[in-house]
Every structure is written in C-alpha cells, then in structure tokens.
Design a protein around this nucleic acid. Structure first.
Lengths: 234, 234
DNA sequence: TAACTGAACTGTACGGGACAGTACAATTGA
DNA sequence: TCAATTGTACTGTCCCGTACAGTTCAGTTA
C-alpha cells in the first residue's frame, strides 16, 4: 500500500481525481451515497474493506468512486475526517445533557438533581453512540498509517464538549454555588465520575449494567458536590 | 478470509496443525520465537500483517509457522489470548500500586499519602503500558471477526485487578477507617478518579500532561477520602 | 418544446501485485 | 535414524487501480 502512495505522479486517464472531483447536482448525490456507504463499511469492517464492496453498497460504479476520490487512502481520510466533524454540527446523536438546567438550578437539592440527570443523559449518549465508539476504535487502529488523522482527532474525542461544561462550572463558581479552586481538574473529575466509566466499559464490549450505572451516577453526583460545595459560613 | 475458515477439514499434507504441533526442545524454541514475533507484529500492524513478515521476524521458515499453528486465524487467537493472560502472571509490566501500604496506613494523613502514591503508580503503569494499549485496541477492532476472543477478554481489561482493590477497601471499611456503603461503586469511583482519565486520554493519543496528571491524582485522592471518610463522632 | 452537447456514469474486463497455504527435495540436529 | 526445519517455487485468490466502449443526465441553443 505504501509503495503505491509513493508513485510520483498518479496521472490517470480516467479523471483528474485530484483536488477537483466531478461537479453538478447528480455528482453531489452520487458523492454523498459513496461517502455514506464508505463510512458505514469502514466503521463496520475497518480499512480492509474492498472498494468493490463500497461501490456496490453505494449503488455506484467503482469508476465513479475513483472519479470523486482518487484513491482508497483519500476516500478513507476524507470520510473519517468528515465523520469526526459531524457530531459537532448537530447536538450529537443522542443529545447531550441539559447544561442550562445545571446553571439555573437553585439550592443544593435542585443542583444535585440536575447533575444526576446530566449524568444519566451522558450515560444514554455514550451507550447509544455505537457509531462514535467504532469511530474511536478505527482511528486509534489506523493512526500510525494515517498520521494526518491525528491533527483532526486531537480536537475531538472525549475533550469534545469540555468548553461548554467548563463554562457551566465557572458560572456556578462565580455565583458562589460551588467552590472550585481548580476548574480544569473539576471538569475532568466530572467526566471521570459520570462519563468515563460508561465509556471505558462500553468501548471494550463489557456491559456495566443498568442498575450499577444508575448507582454510579447518583453517587458520582453526590461525591462531586460534597467535594465542591462551599463550606457553610460559620 | 472467512470462506477459508469455513473449510470442513483443513487437512494438509504438511503436518497435523491441529491440537498437537511439533515436539522437542528445538521445536519449543522455534515456537516461542514465532509467538514473540507474531505478538509484536500483530500489535504493531494489526491482523493485516503477512505471514511471511512474521516468519522473517521470527527468523523461521514459513512452513515452520504452519507446522506449529495450522492457520493465520489460529496463530492470531493463540497469540492474543496468550498476551491477555500474561499481565496477570507477573505483577504487570510497570508494577501496580502498593496496596499493602494502603491497608496498613494509620491516620488520615498517611492514608491520603498512600492513596496519592497509589494513583501515581497507576498513572505510571497506564502510561508505560503501550503494549497493553495496543492490545486493547486490537481486540476491540477484531472482536467481530474473532468472537472467541470475547470470552477471554471479559475476564481482563480494566476489571483485571478489581478483586485486590475491593479487598483493600473492604479491609479499610471493616476497620472503620473508611465508611463505604456501596463497595462496588466505591471501587469503580476509585478507578474513575485515578486510572480512567489516564487510560482514556492515552488510548486516543492525547497527552494528559505530567503536571495535570499530578493535580488530578492529588485532588482525586482528596475527593475520594472526603466522600468516604467517616463523620467524626459528635 | 425539441434537438443537441458534453460531462458524468456504467459494466466489464484486465494488469500488477500481495498474500494464504502447499509441495518437495535438501538439510539439520537430538 | 528420523522428526523437525529450511528454501524455493508454485497455486489460487483477492484487491487496487485503470482502460474502454456504451449510456444517462443536465443544461443550452434553436
């Protein structure tokens, strides 16, 4: 595979296949069909899947695939990089937690309830996001073969929504609802308690269990608040 | 690949290649060389690596590989299953935390110091265990192609040393040093605070940073103890 | 509206190469 | 002596990428 990529000039008579692919309305439809099929198959079968299979799944001739993307490597990187950006466009596949409810919570009880519900939402999102899981595994597997994915990768992953969570915690701290000396650590601890267990176990096929997950979320929220609740004024 | 595995009787004239491979002292040496080379290459390149490359890396003829293991699939499962068992035989590549120091700690300060040091040891172990990381990624990638790996996998992974940690925490609870209502949750929380952040970020190539990791460990131990320290008798 | 035009698409077939597994004769080593 | 090992060469297969001749489609002109 690598020797082919070392070809000095991949000039083919079929098409340019370089920066500019085919244009037009029908080309856009076909291109999208190819991207969709390639993403599904790459996520399910890995990079080893054949181009014929991708073309067949897309209902498209193999030559069309090569007219749009010049090589298997280009198709792979384009599709995976695109899939990395997708979850940030919409609000995520299963919907993230309701951060607004966190910052508007009044009183310790309501805050705890909001935090627990946020943990449940994260758990649901992680559990339902089989596609994201496969994407992470795929990128981790092929990172050494496609180093350019590393650049696109580092911006995403588990650090994806850190800014929003950090903003929510900072607001709570400014308001005096919480006492957070180290914001960066607090954000990571919140993820550690409410998200990472689900992620780690789900990633490796092990089931955490509905009821154990609930206990973890409830007690995790309890733990987080007990750590960062301000000491009552004496 | 799958159709070849569906062959009813892989009877070859070269050798039995079934349950019994070659025997003898030099056969054992060659076999070990093959296993070692195959493990390295599978972990580095994935299942796609060629048998010729494995044989060459082992300094062994390809026929010898087929005399010991009858097929590529058999070699893969044998090697990966073996690699899964290895870390439990010895105490781990980088040495786990000193659990004995945990249970023998006297007083809150010493307990906190012991817990922090345990967190540092876990971080070092996770960070140094590049092989285990590649193994987890490999198993997660090839799980759908080799379902028999799932059986061997579930016993390991992050749940590997849970019993030891659970014993340590139970001892502390029995002694009254800690007040733990839900032991299972407490064990998972300890892992969540001290191990999972390192694992998650390391698995996906992102660096957590020496100094941030230290802050996480120190504050994680603080958080865990604040949650589970018994209320002072009034 | 209807004919025209050129780009995009299709189907098949092929070259080149890599790889799993085998055959076989020669060689090594306990 | 005899099982284990080696080196080479081979078969069959799969797959990437391309060639080519024919067909569909979108936009333009008359």
């Amino acid at each position: 595979m690598d020797d082919k990529a070392a070809k000095p000039a991949p000039t083919g008579t079929t098409g340019p296949a370089g920066p500019t692919g085919p244009t037009g309305p029908r080309a856009a439809r076909k291109r999208q069909a190819v991207v969709r099929a390639a993403r599904d198959l790459f996520l399910r079968e890995g990079f080893g899947v054949g181009m014929d299979a991708i073309a067949a799944e897309a209902g498209v001739s193999k030559v069309t695939v090569y007219n749009h993307f010049g090589s298997k490597e280009a198709l792979f990187t384009a599709v995976v990089a695109g899939a990395l950006d997708e979850p940030l466009a919409d609000g995520g596949p299963a919907g993230g937690p309701d951060l607004a409810r966190l910052v508007t919570a009044e009183g310790p009880d309501e805050l705890k309830a909001a935090l627990t519900e946020a943990g449940r939402a994260w758990g649901r999102a992680v559990r339902a996001d089989a596609e994201g899981r496969a994407l992470r595994t795929l990128v981790a597997t092929e990172l050494h073969r496609f180093p350019e994915l590393g650049r696109a990768w580092h911006a995403h992953g588990p650090a994806g929504h850190h800014p929003a969570v950090a903003d929510a915690l900072r607001t709570l701290a400014d308001r005096g609802t919480l006492d957070i000396p180290d914001l960066e650590v607090a954000v990571l601890q919140l993820y550690s308690l409410l998200v990472f267990p689900q992620m780690v176990f789900e990633q490796y096929g092990t089931e955490l269990g509905e009821e154990l997950g609930e206990r973890l979320v409830v007690d995790g929220a309890e733990m987080f608040l007990r750590r960062y609740s301000p000491a009552p004024a004496p």
